[in-house]
Simulated scan of single mutants.
Amino acid sequence: MAKTTRATQFLEKAGIAFTTHVYEYDPTAERIGLQAAEAIGEAPHRVLKTLMAELDGKPVCVVVPSDREVSMKKLAAAFGGKHAAMMKPAMAEKLTGYVVGGISPFGQKKTVPTAIEVAALREDQVYINGGQRGLQVRLAPADAQKALAAIAAPLVS
C-alpha cells in the first residue's frame, strides 16, 4: 500500500503536520468509518468519515465522526441552502477521484465547499481518510479545517 496519495501530498504542500496509519480495510463492513476506528484501536468519535452530498444540486464535502449520522437539515442550514441529499457513490468517485471507502476531503480532483462537525474540533487529534482504502491520516482537527477552508457547524443528528 502506498503511503503517498493525493491527500498526503495535499497536506504536505499545505504544511500540515500529520502521521499515516495503515489498517486492514474490510470491504464487507457495513459502516466503513466504524470498521476503521476498530481496526486502528481508536474511539469512533475521533475517526472522521468523509461524505459527499449535494446541496441545492451542487456538491459539498462533509466530515463528521464515524459514529454519527449527518442531518441533511443541519447540513443545508450550515451552507445557507434549502435541500441537501447524499451524493450517489459513482458521482462521488468521479468528482473526488477517490473510490468509496477511500474518499478523503484532502486532494480531491475538484475543490468543493467543505463542512466539518464542530464537535470534532474539540479533539486534540482526529483521523481522516488518507486517500485510499486502509489509510488514515492523524492530525489536529483545526489544521484539517484550515487546510480545507472548511466551515465548522453542528452537522449531526
Rank of each mutant, 00 (worst) to 15 (best):
T4M: 12
T4D: 07
R6A: 10
A7C: 07
A7P: 08
T8H: 05
Q9K: 07
L11I: 12
E12G: 08
K13C: 09
K13T: 15
K13L: 13
K13A: 14
K13E: 12
A14K: 14
F18G: 07
F18E: 11
V22C: 15
E24P: 02
Y25N: 04
P27L: 08
P27T: 06
P27Y: 04
T28K: 15
T28I: 08
E30R: 14
I32G: 00
I32H: 01
G33Q: 09
L34K: 12
L34G: 00
L34C: 00
Q35F: 00
Q35K: 14
Q35G: 14
Q35Y: 01
Q35L: 01
A36T: 12
A36Y: 10
A37M: 11
E38G: 14
A39S: 12
G41F: 03
E42A: 11
A43M: 03
P44R: 09
R46L: 12
R46G: 00
V47K: 04
V47D: 06
L48M: 09
K49C: 07
K49I: 05
A53G: 01
E54G: 04
L55C: 04
G57C: 01
P59N: 09
V60R: 03
C61Q: 08
V64D: 03
P65Y: 05
P65C: 08
S66E: 00
D67E: 13
R68T: 14
K73E: 15
K73W: 03
L75M: 09
L75I: 10
A76L: 07
A76S: 04
A78P: 03
A78I: 11
A78C: 10
F79D: 05
F79M: 08
G80M: 05
G80R: 08
G81I: 05
A84Q: 03
A84F: 06
A84W: 05
A85C: 06
A85H: 02
M86Q: 07
K88E: 12
K88H: 11
A90F: 08
A90H: 08
A90C: 06
M91N: 11
M91K: 14
K94N: 06
L95Y: 02
L95M: 10
T96N: 01
T96I: 11
T96W: 03
G97H: 04
Y98V: 09
V99W: 09
V99M: 15
V100W: 06
G101L: 11
F106Y: 13
G107S: 04
K110V: 15
T111Q: 11
T114E: 05
A115W: 07
E117W: 12
V118R: 09
A120Y: 10
L121V: 13
R122V: 09
E123G: 00
Q125N: 09
V126H: 06
Y127N: 04
Y127P: 03
Y127I: 11
I128F: 00
I128M: 08
N129V: 10
G131F: 04
Q132E: 13
Q132R: 15
R133S: 02
R133Q: 12
L135A: 06
L135R: 01
L135Q: 07
Q136C: 01
Q136L: 15
V137C: 02
R138N: 14
P141Y: 07
P141M: 11
D143P: 02
D143G: 02
Q145V: 15
Q145E: 13
K146S: 11
A147P: 12
A147F: 04
L148F: 03
A150G: 07
A150R: 06
I151E: 04
A153Y: 01
A153G: 05
L155A: 06
S157V: 14
